[in-house]
Design a protein around this nucleic acid. Structure first.
Lengths: 332, 332
DNA sequence: CTGAAAGCGCTAACAG
DNA sequence: CTGTTAGCGCTTTCAG
């Protein structure tokens, strides 16, 4: 079943059938309906997407390049919300989302071998093979929470200000011995981790203070609990600033296990204002970012690029949300 | 930059260059390396995936057809874990995952217009347009937690037994007035919802009992809390069987808000053994299913189908996990 | 509004 | 091991 079979049946040229499907305004309504009806009868389900992709030079799919185990990307509320927002917005613009997983061998490298018109780079080591392949293919790319150079359209978040706001909030409450729970050194150059750490450091620095830094990983989830326990046992911090809300929950759990109450004995600040911030008790003081907006902007940017329009970089604002996990510094 | 340019430069035929990239065993190691080196120099990044897809008749991408807002699919732990497992296993098999979102208009229907070799159908209304388009395109399909007919390879879960085990557990604890919190009528034919409900009903039926049925939706999350509150206020159930762990948490939250303790005053059984089961207090008694295995099996099945191998249907087992949210029926 | 010509870039099959 | 032949199914451009 091809365009040609339908054309033969109707008695028009293949091109007219193509137009019936792809450019409705190029032929009479009447003829178009006759063609569509015949196609239906013949069981022709429309132009073959692969052939169309080759002829048009566009596949209609946008890649989402992710590094590390996918479980990290999909099992984290924040990433999942981002992916959902991206997929929704891409669909609205007539594009599909293809997941470009990290390669698991040598034969098949998604970033090299999968047909996409462009890609979103998210949660990636900028030096990864995937990023390199995308640029070798000269595909349009939009970086999200990532530094790929000034020429690359980038959608980011003002984590520097967000982190600073969180730290200042603690300082205003009188805290002076403050811990932070960040990602491991492996993420030293990951913008969110880097900027949050920097924002905390700067705010504390304004008071001549230095944070007690603890580091951990997103997975396994138990790692954060262990790191938090260690931080609380090995130092006398009265407050902890966390890389994200999940870490904040881990700190609260660790504090509780050590018999310390939050916010009575310890103040905890999360980040993201994800589901974890409001689902548990106490509700978290956290720094809100609009992940859905980030996804929409990223999808819009890559779509613009594909349409030959310029795409602007954006830095999304953050906002401190004060809830119940922070309070005045405890009396000595 | 095409195969031809590289061929011209090296002075061999285009086919030999193609072989250098795609069938390394078809030419001498020496020649191959010379070709690859030249390609590298010329900035040729390998065969164009779109052209290759047309010529080979295979795109190397598998669709994942989802219905309803993507937020439901991605922001639910269980679905997210499933998607991650699918993507991982597909990558291992040299395939990519393309998300086939529900159509948001008329011009662009992912299930009709996106190039994929086959698709996984998950969380879909079987009568949806998406499913219809896939079958019109005659694409190989694997159904997950879905009834698409006996000819369609299906990966499912033994929810009937799982639900029964949960209900029997409550019966053994002495409960007789039992509520259930299921999905709305809209999901009457959704296999997980249908089978869990059926399993609960049958187990209770063996004791001549009928459950008090409450129904709600996955989103917004507040809906479950409201439904649970209503159930607890309008009936005198001593235990509630829930469609999933998130609902179980909502029931516990509602009970707590009404001044009832779990499991002292009320027993609650979840489903899935997802993160929600163990993250909060009390840890949930729940019915475990292996979502990652489900994802791996589904990906393996569609990959087999694409390779022309037969793919078997599977029904994964479930297992009751007793934790702290269930206890003996309270004294009257 | 319709059709003819000319590929898009690659690969299967087979011959040498 | 290497090259030739013959498309894959569609769209772009441009003339009628």
């Amino acid at each position: 079943m091809t365009l040609q079979s339908v054309a033969d049946e109707v008695g028009v040229s293949r091109m007219t059938v193509s137009n019936a499907f792809s450019r409705p305004d190029q032929l009479s309504k009447e003829l178009r309906e006759r063609i569509l009806a015949t196609a239906e009868t013949l069981g022709y389900s429309g132009p073959d997407p692969a052939a169309r992709a080759l002829a048009r030079g566009r596949t209609g799919a946008v890649g989402l390049l992710l590094n590390g185990p996918l479980s990290e990307a999909f099992e984290d509320d924040v990433s999942a919300e981002f992916v959902a927002a991206v997929a929704d917005e891409l669909t609205r613009r007539g594009l599909a989302l293809t997941v470009l997983t990290p390669p698991q061998g040598d034969r098949f490298l998604p970033a090299r071998d999968v047909a996409v018109d462009g890609a979103l780079v998210y949660t990636c080591d900028p030096t990864s093979a995937g990023v390199a392949w995308l640029s070798r293919r000269k595909l349009p790319v939009v970086a999200v929470d990532q530094d790929l150079g000034r020429e690359v359209t980038t959608i980011g978040v003002d984590d520097l200000s967000g982190a600073r706001a969180g730290a200042r909030h603690l300082l205003e409450l009188g805290h002076r011995r403050i811990g932070v729970l960040a990602l491991t050194e492996q993420f030293a150059h990951d913008p969110p981790n880097r900027d949050r750490l920097l924002g905390w450091r700067r705010a504390l620095g304004e008071h001549g203070l230095e944070p007690v830094v603890a580091r951990t990983t997103l997975l396994p989830r138990s790692a954060a609990f262990a790191a938090a326990t260690d931080l609380l046992e090995s130092s006398d911090v009265t407050a902890v600033l966390c890389f994200d809300d999940v870490f904040a929950r881990a700190v609260i759990a660790a504090a509780t296990a050590l018999g310390r109450s939050v916010p009575g004995d310890l103040s905890v600040v999360g980040y993201d204002d994800s589901r974890a911030a409001t689902v548990g008790v106490p509700a978290l003081t956290t720094v809100r970012q609009d992940v859905t907006a980030k996804g929409h902007l990223a999808a819009g940017a890559i779509a613009d690029l594909l349409d030959g329009r310029a795409a602007r970089s954006h830095v999304l604002p953050t906002e401190l949300v004060v809830r119940d996990s922070t309070g005045p510094v405890p009396a000595p």
